[in-house]
Each structure stands twice: as structure tokens, then as C-alpha cells.
Design a protein around this nucleic acid. Structure first.
Length: 287
DNA sequence: AACCAGGGTGAGC
DNA sequence: GCTCACCATGGT
């Protein structure tokens, strides 16, 4: 990998990165906007534009070294996805899932942004989650996610009118707790078990949402969120005897190890695309 | 018109 | 510990 900084731009070369897949389609983040092949968003107050290039990508709106360091971490550039895939020889289906989606990366989002998005994700679909997140940003956010301090000034009625439904009070109460000293930023420095326990204190956060916050917002790559898709594919291809999501979560982490969450992303997205069958007699043949 | 979507919560065992 | 009805909303 090579990174060249200058002129408000950051060029990243010799890296596999599929911007459309990672930033828009993969449902790990919901507020990137695509326009004529380029992708823009504001993350933690930093507005940026991603322009894909044949052997990497260009970032426009990178002012200094601090910005560059931020985006380097956001895009998880210091991780060798090829080596990870190569280490999955014991699990051919998982290795194949990763090979089917080269360029899919797992982002390191600000914890608050991941927390808000995935509270809204509960028993919801990707299109609606996207609508809710962008609605929050548009009405209350000045381009990016509204802060906890801003969010607590919104009424439950307003959030319901926006379409949050029964998640509105969860979001509000969680915002209050974060504003009142819940150690959200400190979770990244804790063990996975410790961070998970803290996250479960927040209303609207159970095992699955907590795992998403850990994976996408805290850099804890051993987290393995089990949603309906992952439950189905794991039962079909790896754990036919598994009783419930908790057992799948536990055993998948044992199987895939310290970067289980990255494997999860590939499996999840392959299942959603129909690249991995969920039926007993199916195969992993690409459609 | 039921069923589904990157589930969580509280009640009742 | 476990199971289950219920929770808004929009799309099929």
C-alpha cells in the first residue's frame, strides 16, 4: 500500500477497496451518498469525497496529517484482508465468501455513529435504516450525525414522526446516558467482554446491536453479530445443530478467531446477495 | 392479509 | 437461566 498526501487530497494506491460495496451496499454504514461514481459523507465532523481509482482510491477533503490518520483508520487500511482470507483454509465456505467480495472492508466508525445507526436497525430493514439515519442527519445534524447533546433536545414525538417507531425512546434514553457520562469512547480500550457488558446497559442495545457497535465502532474485530441472515447461513454451512443465536455467536468466534467479524461481513453480504444459498440442497455457486 | 426486516424488552416460568 | 408476545413502519 502507498499513501500520498498533498493539495487537500489523499491518494491511496495498491489497495483493494470497493467503495460502492463497502460504503453503500454492505449495510455497515448508512449515510454515504453516491453521485456519478464518487461517494461523499461527513464522519465525526470531517467532510470527505471518495473517488475510486483502478488500483485504489482518492480522498478529497483531507486537510492535514490528522485527517489522513483518521481516514487511514476509518477505512481499516492497515489490515491485510488477503492474509485473513488465506488463513481460512479450514473453512472453505468462509474463504470463498471473502474471495467473492474482494474490496469489501470493515470500517472503523465513530462509536456514537455506529450506536445510533444500529439502535435504529433493530427488527428493521436496510432501506428504512438508511432513511432514518439520513433523516436524522438532514433535520438535526448539520451534515453529519447529531451529537448526543443535540439528540436529547429532540422530542420522542418528533423521532416517531421521522419513522423511528418504538425505537424512539431507546434512542433518546441512550443519548441521555451517553451525555451523562456513559463511557462510550472508553469502550474501545476495554476487553470485548467488558465493552459488551457496558453496551448492554443501554436501552435498545442487546447482544446483536452491541456486537455491531463493537465491530463497526470500537475496532473489536472478534465481535460476531448474529442477525437473521447470519443465523440462517451459519446453520446451513457450519452449525446445523446450533440451538440459538447465542450459541452461533459463541462458536463462530471460536472458529474464526480474532477477526471473526470481518468473516461475518463477507458471509452476511454473500447471503444477502444470494451468492451463498441458505437451503439444504444449495451450493455456493455464484448466481 | 399475513410475513419480513442486520432485535430488544419485560413478563412469566 | 429460558421462552414469547409485543413493539412501529413500510414493503412484498
Amino acid at each position: 500500500m502507498e499513501i500520498i498526501l498533498g493539495g487537500g487530497e489523499m491518494r491511496v494506491r495498491d489497495v483493494r477497496f470497493d467503495a460502492a460495496l463497502t460504503l453503500v451496499e454492505s449495510a455497515q454504514v448508512f449515510h454515504w451518498q453516491e453521485e456519478s461514481g464518487a461517494f461523499s459523507a461527513k464522519v465525526a465532523g470531517r467532510a470527505v469525497r471518495v473517488i475510486p481509482r483502478p488500483d485504489g482510491f482518492l480522498l478529497a477533503g483531507v486537510a492535514d496529517e490528522a485527517d489522513a490518520a483518521f481516514w487511514r483508520r476509518y477505512f481499516d487500511l492497515d489490515r491485510d484482508y488477503t492474509a485473513l482470507a488465506a488463513g481460512l483454509r479450514a473453512y472453505p465456505t468462509a474463504a470463498r465468501a471473502m474471495a467473492l467480495l474482494p474490496g469489501l472492508r470493515v470500517l472503523n466508525q465513530p462509536p456514537w455513529e455506529a450506536l445510533v445507526a444500529f439502535i435504529l436497525s433493530a427488527n428493521n430493514n436496510v432501506g428504512r435504516i438508511r432513511g432514518l439515519v439520513n433523516g436524522l442527519i438532514k433535520r438535526y445534524g448539520e451534515g453529519g450525525f447529531p451529537s448526543p447533546e443535540r439528540l436529547v433536545t429532540i422530542s420522542e414525538g418528533e423521532l416517531r414522526a421521522l419513522g423511528c417507531g418504538y425505537r424512539a425512546p431507546y434512542l433518546l434514553q441512550t443519548a441521555r446516558m451517553v451525555r451523562n457520562g456513559f463511557p462510550l469512547e472508553a469502550l474501545a480500550g476495554m476487553s470485548g467482554v467488558e465493552a459488551h457488558e457496558h453496551l448492554l446497559e443501554l436501552p435498545g442495545v442487546g447482544d446483536k446491536v452491541a456486537d455491531c457497535v463493537q465491530l463497526f465502532g470500537l475496532g473489536q474485530r472478534d465481535a460476531f453479530p448474529v442477525d437473521v441472515w447470519v443465523e440462517r447461513l451459519m446453520k446451513r454451512w457450519f452449525l446445523p445443530e446450533a440451538r440459538d443465536r447465542r450459541e452461533i455467536r459463541r462458536r463462530a468466534r471460536e472458529m474464526f478467531g480474532a477477526q471473526a467479524g470481518i468473516v461475518q461481513q463477507s458471509l452476511f453480504h454473500c447471503a444477502r446477495l444470494g451468492l451463498i444459498s441458505l437451503e439444504e440442497d444449495g451450493s455456493t455457486e455464484a448466481v
